[in-house]
Amino acid sequence: MLVTQFIIRRLVFSIFLLFGVSVIVFALVNAVGNPIEILLAERPGISQQAIDQMTAYYGLDQPATTRYLMWAGNLLQGDFGTSIIYNQPVWQMMTSWGLETLKIQVPGILIALALATAMAVTAAMRQYSRVDFGVMASAMLGQSLPGFFVGILLILIFSYWLGIFPSYGAYSMRSPLWGSHLLDALWHMVLPVAMLTFFNTAALTLLMRSNLVDILRHDFVTAARASGLPERRIIYGHALRNALIPVLTYLSLLFGLMLGTAPVTETVFTWPGVGYLYINAIQQLDYPVILGVTMAIAVMLVVVTLLTDIAYVLIDPRIRLD
């Protein structure tokens, strides 16, 4: 099948998927309650006139179906609506907060991949040795610690006791570190990235080690050894590439899982990312934001799975695009 044909089929399917997701999320938010009431509970002083204005603006007096159609119609024109809480365009918020999320998630995944590869290779090459046992034990331990616990531990050690790294935020409120905005941003990234790296490395190491151990038993590895190729080449050129194939799925899952790890990480480090935004929006029933972020996440998942499938075909010639 042609790659373009495959992509088109996927995209058509995705449109239905995204439609379904938006309906479900809209219905759920609608079932929970009215955002104005939640706003009122927090700020009782708001005048009746302002309430009426907001109700009219967001169409909260209209039936849910009408509101959904309004929202969807605007979305089709590229308008994600306006946040009820922040009174800002949702699209603008998502891009600026989204960038902050990617800033810690992408390094968290890439560093983890590099670390996990190194550890898995070290362990698999000495299967059942003390090194292997040590790597596996620490990876299992790492995996069993909840992410927020690791985050709090990092803050305790590096912020509270040692005072080396900031414990919250993406930028310094007053003057940036050493007068450099770049250094300041990196400085703030260290702990959240460390938490994500820790979390991702543990699982990736276990997965890659078991894949590698399995692959190293294959005849084609023995055949490569019997052909006189050096061990390094066999590991990196033959075994690792095969072992990475299942990891690819996991990696795409990790990008999807950002949605799971982002809220925790960003809450622990008060990080101005989409995860933080999302949690806040849910607490306040800020449904334009909830819907916008959900749709963005869904689109991202669609794109990531599509890219993963294409990457599979590029890596593994046995797989076809059907």
Partner: peptide
């Protein structure tokens, strides 16, 4: 290992039982 690498595949080579398994599937 270095000396063995000059014998394996060069002076002495091997053919395995299962040809489907003894070739790397992704190359």
């Amino acid at each position: 290992p270095a000396a063995l690498g000059k014998v394996r595949g060069r002076r002495m080579a091997m053919v395995f039982q299962n040809p489907a398994h003894s070739l790397n599937p992704i190359l």
